[in-house]
Design a binder for these strands. Sequence first.
RNA 1: GCGGGUAUGGCGGAAUUGGCAGACGCGCCGGACUUAGAAUCCGGUGUCUCACGACGUGAAGGUUCAAGUCCUUUUACCCGCACCA
Length: 829
Amino acid sequence: MYNKKIDEKWQKKWEETNIAKFNKENIGKKYYCLEMFSYPSGAKLHVGHWYNYGPVDTFARFKKMQGFEVFQPMGFDAFGLPAENYAIKTGIHPYDSTMKNIETMEKQLKEMGAMFNWDSEVITCKEDYYKWTQWLFLKLYERGLAYRKKANVNWCPSCNTVLANEQVIDGLCERCSSVVTKKDLTQWFFKITDYAEELLSGLDELDWPEKTKKIQTNWIGKSTGSIVTFDVENSDLSFDVFTTRVDTLMGVTYVVVAPEHEIVPKITTKSCEKEVNEYIEKCKLIKEIDRLAENREKTGVFTGSYAIHPITKARVPIWIADYVLATYGTGCVMAVPAHDERDFEFAKKYKLNLKQVIIPKMIGEEKSDLKDKFKFEELLDKKAYTEKGILINSGEFDSLTSEEAKEKITKKLKSINKGDFKVTYRLRDWLVSRQRYWGAPIPVVYCEKCGVVPVPEKDLPVKLPYNVEFKPDGKSPLAKSEEFVNTVCPHCGGKAKRETDTLDTFVCSSWYQFRYPDNKNSEKIFDTDWIDKMLPVDKYVGGPEHAAMHLLYARFITKVLRDAGLTKVSEPFKSLVHQGLILGPDGNKMSKSKGNVISPDDYVEKYGSDVFRMYLMFGFSYVEGGPWSEEGVTSMSKFVSRLQRILETINSLGNNEKTEYTKSDKDLLYVFNFSLKGIIADLEQMQFNTAIAKIMEITNALYKYVANVKEQEQNVKLLKEIAIKFIQVISPFMPHFAEEMWSIYNMPFSVFNTSYPIVEEKYLISDTIELAVQVNGVVRYKIIVPSSADETEIEKIALEHERLKDYLVNKTIKKVIVVKSRIVNIVIG
RNA sequence: GCGGGUAUGGCGGAAUUGGCAGACGCGCCGGACUUAGAAUCCGGUGUCUCACGACGUGAAGGUUCAAGUCCUUUUACCCGCACCA
């Protein structure tokens, strides 16, 4: 009986024979199959890990048997907040808890029996890895892609520390639930915005889920519009605004500048100074929780200054308001209350003017009443007209369509040097500083004389000290280590202080796919020639939650490495799949508090890892996931036993040889080859559930044969041949079980060194085929036709059927549609 | 608010891409084996109807010889972004 003992037996043998070994000689057939590595925060592997790694291992083994040289590495994303928070709570050092977790997880991963290349393991918190993470930082710095800037960051006034975005839950601190505010701090950024256009256009060529591409597209947020320059009245100052609706330019009645904008103090008049300063202070203190609130009422104040409309030369008041974001576009907007809802709302509140310049485009006379509907007077108590249309009240631009006007107005602005076409992105630069202990130190020192000095490559890694007070008290933990902070300037040799922030863990995981194939390289981050042969990753599988974070960062870093001449690869992950989420039996997300957590270990112990893996593959559509079912596991256990019984029965039959195949033999060969064809197609698309359904069909056909064909008529030789092939077919799905069956059939170790069976098309062809015949679209009877029959012959056979007469009473045949090897439809009336 | 996705028996889920809806499995019903049960093996199982047959893929229309699949409208739930000018 298949059980955990059998798992252990074959795992041992696989390890001894190093079955997962990657043969570099065979690089021409390489297949880089990658699963997102584990985050060792919890002590154990959960169902989610299994659901990612188990089925993908099935896929990888299938690829191996197809003749590919499979590279399937595994590692640990070991830096990060949970380990540190755990340390704060328990006093156990993050290094110790992380290493202990990794040890447990490695053991569990081995019990899974996946074909991982453990030789290539990477652990991001180890010096030999983070040395190169730091090196990468220096490379970005060298290329002007890492820079320091004052940033408005999340601040918890109770913990007295900066929080990462992920630590802010609905505007509250994840640890103490205090209301989070904003604070200006100098932080390190990566200039991902330099790559915005390529990150966007590169999506086209990727074999990724459309949804994921859409998320990245929205995240990058390209928007095409115009830039318009407004001069400040009685001053030589001017400022730019970005707009996608320059066709409404003639409707501008005021302009708004973000409160943080540098021009604000320069244009604020004496009489407005007090009010403006108070407003700016208020904005700084605004709580994150309030900022996130829906339908927040807009506020703002007048600066006292006026801007000059670039075309009409009209005076328009300059306001500041926090509905204008300093971080998007130019931080200034032109306000057209008649045609923008936000401006409309603001203008109504502060009694600012409206000017309508767009009316709906008329389609025929009957809609002319629309003209009245959008009359200026009514706009005030209704809402803005934000659709495109025809220009009015716009002087030389009257009667143009919105699209024509955008073109003409921008060109006009360009000619008088007051504007141009402009593309803007929503994507912001990547803030990589973390005021945390458990991460890779940022390799930079601050010298009194030389300023910011990068740590020279020869001094890497900047080691993360072990003995540090990591409990939060308002300072970065590393800042409290005198030994760490105080150093000498690599440039002038004078006194200097180290950067005490660490890198966001997403930096560590943004390049690991390059390190796996060359993980022991102590000279370089990786060998370029070798990496260019191994990359890109052919199949990448992991959860969809990383769509806009990890997957975007990894693409960005890849392009940076390429531009630095370290690789020729532009996209790291050619093909991407997201597995679904396994929910608790109650249909809710698994959580300790709900008490609905399923522990893989219990099932592996009871049924063996193959049964557990098979259930995960069969019970759900892979990309959907769904609720856990206890019956599902037991039924899978029963199926594996049933499969074992028939394989053992066939093996025990006495040999006989029949020279000719009977109808039963041919039927069996048909089912086997037809199902095999489907299994191969399903595996290619990671449709594990339907592939296993077909394995069950083969199993059922074998039972049927043994039960229905008289013993002396059974073709045992054929049965055994099919059984042996069948073991090969199932081996990627049930690796331990298949290896055991393989040995029972006296086949030489290992089944994974054999080729996956090939469909024998000759057994799929039969002399006749059955076709359904519809009358007016409803199936009424079936006909048997020679498989060689053409449309005319099929039609003839279909029309000869006596059942048709019943339907033809008082009716005549109007049309006959014959779709070869599909269907016949007889239209009567 | 914007963008994306999903909806199929009692349940998990299929459907060669417009061609026999419900593969495969669970559950349920029946039979065989058994002193008995468990296990196992075999058969049945969308709904309504005694049956002929009719109806049936969230809802309502439409295109087509033919629609779960395409088009229009709509509802519910899930996910992403959210004052992005």
